[in-house]
Design a protein around this nucleic acid. Sequence first.
DNA 1: TTGAAAGCGCTAACAC
DNA 2: GTGTTAGCGCTTTCAA
Lengths: 359, 359
Amino acid sequence: MSDVSAGDARRPARPGGGRRVTMRDVADAAGVSQPLVSIVMRDVPGASPESRAHVLQVAARLGYRRDERARMLKQGRSRLVGIVFHAAQPFHGQLIDELQLAARAAGYNVSLAAVTKRRGEADAIEALLGERVEGLVLLGASLDEPQLNRIADEVPVVTVASQYSSERFDSVSMDDARGTELAVQHLHQRGHSRILYLGAPGVSGDEVRTATFLEAAAEAGIGDEIAIVAGGASEAAGAEAIADALQRYPDTTAVIAFNDRSAQGVVAQARLLGKRVPEDLAVVGFDNSEQAELPYLQLTSLAQDPAQLASAAVEMVVGRVDANAEGEVPRIGEHRILPTELVVRSSSGGSGNSVERSR
Amino acid sequence: MSDVSAGDARRPARPGGGRRVTMRDVADAAGVSQPLVSIVMRDVPGASPESRAHVLQVAARLGYRRDERARMLKQGRSRLVGIVFHAAQPFHGQLIDELQLAARAAGYNVSLAAVTKRRGEADAIEALLGERVEGLVLLGASLDEPQLNRIADEVPVVTVASQYSSERFDSVSMDDARGTELAVQHLHQRGHSRILYLGAPGVSGDEVRTATFLEAAAEAGIGDEIAIVAGGASEAAGAEAIADALQRYPDTTAVIAFNDRSAQGVVAQARLLGKRVPEDLAVVGFDNSEQAELPYLQLTSLAQDPAQLASAAVEMVVGRVDANAEGEVPRIGEHRILPTELVVRSSSGGSGNSVERSR
DNA sequence: TTGAAAGCGCTAACAC
DNA sequence: GTGTTAGCGCTTTCAA
């Protein structure tokens, strides 16, 4: 079919759709050349004030909006950082907020891809690569190192809050070892010796925390009073695990949970079983997320500052992107570990808020 | 084999960056024309098995990946549905999962934009429009109707879980009125008359629920025993509000909370104050989110099926997109209300799980 | 200050 | 079956 008179549409009326307005349309309507419209729209010097005003007015009247895809295509680069996050993790929401800010400050935009129950990490990454992101920030990555290495061949990668030691990509995470140490010391100082570590086997960070837990306990001289149980990284997992653990280790007086979510499960379940927190059971979590501050939780937690994680991640990934752009030799993987603080709240017996620093 | 650039052929010659491989590169390396590569990569008929195999092999060796932006540009459409979500709302995570699935089934991809503390809805929408999404699904939208109307002039819009009655865009939401009615009836049947509605002023859905709450209570003959307090849509807001409300209305025996998050705050705070749930205080929430199922909550809740919301939303937005594509006359806004179920769990005294249907 | 021409990476129409 | 040509909407030379 040859739609003959389609080109005659001087003013494309688009009641909710139809053909979009292009620079060509604006140029024609304003009686100037199309590149001049480009100059005006990009707000760069090269157009007289009169033209500028006129073009802007016409553009507004026509409802013109720049096509980012075309712009990226022509520019040869996207200035886009891809972010892979887990839709079910509220903490990732905080990270996204910070990452967007940091990226914008570095002159980049972000493109998001969510990992959900039915959409894996590899899939999300593929989608972003197809959009030609120039770098990738992976939140809570769980792919193995060889897989990530392969991706890092295409585009700079930095993982956040996961532990890797690859030479081909970077990572930022909190100081899990020091954090665990702080937690144990804190509880020990408050008289606890029957401490339980409620881990999340298979989740990144758990191995280090488990190992350090054992060391720190041994160092405190309570190595044979502690226990380790397998839980998970969710409220439900924490609740289930603690219910079980309190039967196996009924004289437990303190719990270090894998994250704030599982800690919340621990607190709720413990209370349901008639235990008071912290009098009967002291609880410490990881992340110092927003929920740690909930009035009925007041959870002592190891702070993982989202702003710091985000700015480090952006700095590293953008650094690699820029280095590539200038043809520099690829550096080796950098695995940055950020200092942790123990934020003491009432769930471990603290009164009000005090903060102890790690290093 | 006869590659000009040195280095090992197995790994792509772009150590984490550099110029990307294009179809031109593949074509040259394979000794065929570039459009033929396109035919092969799109997996459409028109190439001999031999060429196909050869091209695929060369593409793999070079690490070729199709540029989606260029493809969209050329095709004149993006087949992209934009999704605006709130990074801090776990329920949106569930919706994203379902939306991605539904969109893919309809032949569309999704592009995400997060609303965060520091990035408003309007901003997120702008970003998606710049990417040339063909339709917009807004989760928990809070812009006013005129603003949304303006956006709906550019692209079909459907809001999810917000109440609007515009003629220019669509919406899907649960049956708030019927849900509230069910909640009141449920509690009344169980002997409660001093029922509290803990609302979230300003959040969409609250008005209808408040009004229906009054009506349903009046109808049940308990109109002067109930109370309404202002809370919010978060755990903290629920906890704060209930602590306050229990002082002002100490003989309250049941609470209907604005959503599961605030209900969780209510339960936790009530327990902290020595109340048992449901014996001393029955609690009902809205959303039937994943947290409603937590073992220590077992929250009775009004189900808002994410899969149903998502498929309705996608159907509506894609319907408009297709209608536009075929130059049909714009229909008037459709505001679909999905049936609600009350899922009874132990927080309201239910034993196990039973389900009562609405309508 | 403005316009003409070229081309980013891809798909679509048509010729061979 | 394969190559040639054209052009999506934009930015970027380079001339005028």
